[in-house]
Design a protein around this nucleic acid. Structure first.
Lengths: 250, 250
DNA sequence: GTCCCCGCTATTGTATACATTAAGTATTCA
DNA sequence: TGAATACTTAATGTATACAATAGCGGGGAC
């Protein structure tokens, strides 16, 4: 094994998993396509054992599907699969927000959330918003949702939300990008930001039901958002995750 | 490899996974305990590769936890972890019930649900209920919940509910058993059965909100149920899954 | 006597060889 | 000529050998 370059800073399994996920989300591998272990070995640089572990993990993650006769194929999703996933995630986040409100959260714990909020406000002042600002928005929004989830203090719930978000298309923030040039885009971001504000307020005032309701509404907004994006396919290239959507023939 | 008996009817990976899960739920392996690959190889009869695949799957399933320095340990759960898991599952089932109601379900699809309902009614007529009848109840109840989940016609949601149920303690039916001899037991089963009846009615009448609400209430009943069971520990041996609960010192 | 360092051992992470099965192709028979 | 069967091949499933690392124990020095 002279020529195999081995990077020992991360495990081969993790390296393979990241590489394969990249390939999946970038669209190098088409939905329904069978994934070849040997090919994966070549493209990832790891050997078969770590590659197989990565494949198992990606299957559990929901990006791959086991073929009964052996091996794995790239999973394909319908538009409804995706909108359901968004709603599902919203439902779980609603539960997290309710837990946070009911169980109580100190002002100190809410601080990072509020910082996120302000930072997003800052970005949204730009009209129309630039691509760079969008990129920052996506990061900040993801951070906001992650922090909110943490406030539930419920490891099983946090874990489950992570899994529901693992399918990257379930990330509401992602879809926004697809329509950055649409006139409705900015408006949608502003409504979403309003939701963020309300959920913090509800948690501060220990209004569990209100906190839950607004997060579910937030997800419904994201679903409308997705529909809009799919009707205006011009910017879909900004959404690598959508490579996993089934083609029209399905 | 003369003496290793190989059963070719199922894959070694699946065999190892089932065997290890058995060990976890039966309490042979204690929470927090590190799991030895070599030992697992001996007890399962599979070789290291399939054992490792099984360990990865069990980690994704939530029964094991990866140790940073390598290997896996048996995950430990607090009482709140478990009650949160039940509520989480109820929330997802509520969404499934709502989807079923909103998207419409034919009378023919509801038939199996109603059969389950009647069968459970039959069992509950026994007062007090026998251990055998309990066992049947658990099976039927699980079937009812699975069928209900299917009605949502949402693969991502079904998948997620399966995962939330994968932690077996999250199965509301399980906890009932722990208190089969308690005076409150029968009453709880009867209330649960009433919930089942209501959710079917709500789905038939396309009342999404009502269908969702009753499933969430159903989960809250299961949580009360769990608390009751834990206060009356005499029958905990009926609940192997609870072997995973952290001991009092945690 | 205690603390630190070195080396050993046990266990995991990785690579690869071997077994088995499924799919594709060619050949033969009807 | 078409269909069925057998053979070949390429892939996955399994087992095991090898490498690296972390934890532990002993010994030495301060």
């Amino acid at each position: 094994m002279a020529e195999r370059e081995v990077d020992r800073s991360v495990s081969q399994t993790v390296k393979a998993q990241l590489a394969l996920r990249d390939q999946l989300l970038s669209g190098s591998l088409r939905p329904g396509e069978r994934i070849s272990e040997l090919q994966a070995v070549e493209t990832t640089g790891a050997s078969r054992t770590p590659v197989r572990m990565a494949l198992v993990r990606l299957e559990e993650e929901g990006l791959l599907e086991a073929i009964p006769s052996g091996g794995f194929m790239v999973k394909a999703f319908s538009e409804r699969d995706i909108s359901d996933s968004i709603e599902l995630r919203g439902t779980l986040e609603g539960l997290a927000a309710r837990f946070a409100a009911e169980r109580g959260v100190s002002a100190r714990e809410l601080e990072p959330l509020k910082e996120c909020l302000s930072a997003i406000d800052e970005l949204l002042r730009q009209v129309p918003i630039s691509v760079d600002a969008f990129s920052s928005y996506v990061t900040l929004n993801a951070r906001f949702h992650a922090l909110l989830t943490e406030l539930s203090r419920s490891p099983p719930l946090i874990r489950q939300i992570d899994r529901a978000s693992a399918l990257p298309f379930a990330s509401p923030s992602g879809f926004v990008m697809a329509q950055s040039a649409l006139p409705e885009a900015q408006q949608i971001l502003i409504i979403g930001q309003e939701h963020h504000r309300v959920v913090i307020d509800a948690i501060e005032n220990r209004e569990g039901a209100r906190a839950e309701a607004v997060m579910r509404e937030h997800a419904r907004l994201a679903v409308r958002n997705l529909r809009l994006a799919l009707r205006n396919r011009t910017h879909l290239d900004l959404l690598p995750a959508l490579a996993l959507i089934k083609t029209a023939t399905d």
